[in-house]
């Protein structure tokens, strides 16, 4: 690490997986950031919540299923995963549909958390 005090990094995921590459390449940055000992949070908003949907089967589209990686994040000490309630509900989803444990926040709680960050990365 280059500086003494860890910065608060937030990764904002707002795109669905597979339709575009953003979700996968975002996850690659998250994994790298874990090596820098920063205070990392991941948030899932809008179609980004679909990244965490249980049961993804990608054989038929001949694309790598990267969803198991979200479950491996804990091993990288990336443990702060947040989902906006409004985004879940407006897609007919509940926490039980998600493949990892997350903290479900209201829109305003998420806004507060975002305002506390030093660096916000969105893809």
């Amino acid at each position: 690490m280059t500086e003494g005090v860890a910065k608060k990094f937030m990764f904002v995921n707002r795109t669905a997986p597979y339709g575009t590459i953003y979700a996968l390449e975002s996850l690659e940055v998250v994994l790298i950031s874990a090596a820098f000992d920063q205070d990392v949070s991941l948030v899932f908003v809008d179609d980004g919540v679909w990244q965490l949907k249980k049961g993804q089967q990608t054989k038929g589209i001949e694309t790598k299923n990267f969803s198991p990686t979200y479950r491996a994040l804990e091993g990288y000490d990336v443990e702060k995963l947040y989902v906006e309630r409004e985004s879940l509900e407006s897609r007919g989803l509940t926490e039980d549909d998600l493949l990892v444990d997350v903290n479900v926040l209201s829109s305003s709680e998420l806004g507060e958390l975002m305002a506390e960050q030093d660096v916000v990365l969105s893809f």
Binding site: E3, K7, S122
Partner: peptide, 16 residues
């Protein structure tokens, strides 16, 4: 990719 994270750490502001 570490260069991106490092930029987030070392720069005062990061704009996407």
């Amino acid at each position: 990719l570490g260069q991106l994270v490092e930029s987030g750490i070392q720069a005062d502001r990061l704009v996407v």
